[in-house]
Nucleic acid binder design. Sequence first.
DNA 1: CTTATTTAAGATATTTTTATCCGAAATAAA
DNA 2: TTTATTTCGGATAAAAATATCTTAAATAAG
Lengths: 145, 145
Amino acid sequence: MFSKTCEYAIKAVLYIATQSLNNIRVKIGDVAENTGSPEAFTAKILSTLTKHKLLHSIKGPYGGFEIEEKKMKQIKISEIVYAIDGDAIYNGCGLGLNKCNAAKPCPMHDKFIKVRSELKKMLETTTVHELATKVKAGKSILIRN
Amino acid sequence: MFSKTCEYAIKAVLYIATQSLNNIRVKIGDVAENTGSPEAFTAKILSTLTKHKLLHSIKGPYGGFEIEEKKMKQIKISEIVYAIDGDAIYNGCGLGLNKCNAAKPCPMHDKFIKVRSELKKMLETTTVHELATKVKAGKSILIRN
DNA sequence: CTTATTTAAGATATTTTTATCCGAAATAAA
DNA sequence: TTTATTTCGGATAAAAATATCTTAAATAAG
Ligand code: SF4
Ligand code: SF4
């Protein structure tokens, strides 16, 4: 469904958001540890997310990552997926034809479009804040030990 | 969504099925050419599909691949996906947690499960015959030139 | 039986994805 | 100013996915 990189990215954002809800700024090591992701690779991902303005980073001692509560209410999961995996999941086709054409589509078109648009809608209507709140309340987890 | 290998596999099966509807047996080269897939790689994929009994292969001169009409009415697209990509798309989780647990799920669980089960249902209710018929009737295509 | 044709299977190569490493830049505190 | 801490950015490395090549096995036809 998503690339591994994208899974790490979603978990990382949700972990940072959850901690930000408690006004705790977190370091790369914390994120890696609490999402079950490799640390150096997590650094790369967080850097990408920061460039896309999905996270706020602070360098130096007592630095780390955080997300304002206002921001996490705005950011949708779709934006994280887009920043990492690009638009393939939104615009790419099920059978990978070079170009799409509704007049003469691939034979799975109708059925495929239906499922894909539901996925898209789901990602576009789910906010980081909504999910982070669930994690904070202990209703769900980001890592299984 | 699917691996590239899986996309090739679906297109290959549909091409072979479409030709079988006209009682034409096809060779690897034909399949590759008419699905826009690399030939040697297509050979590997067809071999896998044959082992999974999703295709019938005949060696030697005048040989090639075919699917009985009876068979193509039975085979669902889900079976092709399963043969190539395994059960990740059916049982894997959106965030890639090691194990799933409905009691303490990942925060996307509910929404994710909904979309995934629709995808699963779609694949499990679409037969090869249904799609091959569409292609045969010229209503859809497998390759864009 | 011999030859030509075709799939099967294993070895190898290339590309992409995932992951690590290391030095630079920023910055807070002593 | 110096030091310790932390992110940033570029260079590599390892693993997985995708793709090719080469030889073997099967078989139809002459
Ligand atoms: S025809 Fe439809 S389903 Fe097929 S590749 Fe194009 S957009 Fe996707
Ligand atoms: S909790 Fe649900 S959505 Fe999350 S990984 Fe498990 S099955 Fe998938």
